[in-house]
Simulated scan of single mutants.
Amino acid sequence: MTSRNKKQRKLRNAEYYDFQGILDKLYADSKNGKTFTNLVELICLPQNVELAYRTL
């Protein structure tokens, strides 16, 4: 599998588990200089756990 195909699959998986919106918001906020705390709450979201399991 090529690097491009892996990247596309990861994006599809994130969209499938409704986690892409959260990732996009984190990225946008980080570009605006926001400092994050309490990210454990996001890590523990069921969508993220399912996405991580799927990725493995």
Rank of each mutant, 00 (worst) to 15 (best):
N5Y: 06
Y17W: 10
K25N: 10
N38H: 13
T35I: 12
A28P: 02
K25H: 11
V40H: 05
E15A: 03
A52K: 04
N48E: 07
L51R: 07
T37G: 06
R54Y: 09
I22D: 11
F36L: 06
E50P: 00
F36P: 10
N32T: 00
I22Q: 05
Q8C: 05
D29P: 05
Y27Q: 04
K6C: 08
T55V: 07
L42V: 10
D18A: 04
E50I: 00
E50W: 04
K31W: 07
V49N: 06
S30G: 05
C44T: 14
L42K: 04
D29E: 13
S3Q: 07
K31C: 11
T37V: 10
E41V: 14
A52V: 13
L42I: 14
Y27A: 01
T37F: 03
N13Y: 07
M1C: 12
F19H: 00
Y17K: 03
N48I: 04
K6H: 03
A14W: 01
R9L: 15
A52D: 04
T55W: 01
K10H: 03
N13W: 09
R12V: 02
E15P: 00
Y16N: 08
N5P: 00
C44Y: 09
S30E: 14
Q20S: 12
K31R: 15
Q20A: 12
L56G: 15
E50S: 12
R54M: 09
L23S: 06
L11G: 00
L39S: 03
T2S: 15
Y17H: 12
R54E: 15
F19V: 04
K6G: 04
L42T: 04
R54P: 01
R4M: 06
R54K: 15
L11P: 01
E15F: 03
Y16M: 04
D29W: 11
Q47D: 07
F19S: 06
P46W: 00
T2P: 10
Q47P: 02
E15Q: 11
L23M: 12
K7G: 02
G33N: 03
N32Q: 12
V40F: 01
E15M: 08
A28C: 06
A52Q: 09
T55L: 15
L45H: 10
K34D: 08
K7S: 10
A28H: 15
R54N: 15
L11Y: 06
K34L: 09
Y27R: 07
R54G: 01
G33L: 01
Y53K: 13
S3P: 05
T35C: 03
F36S: 06
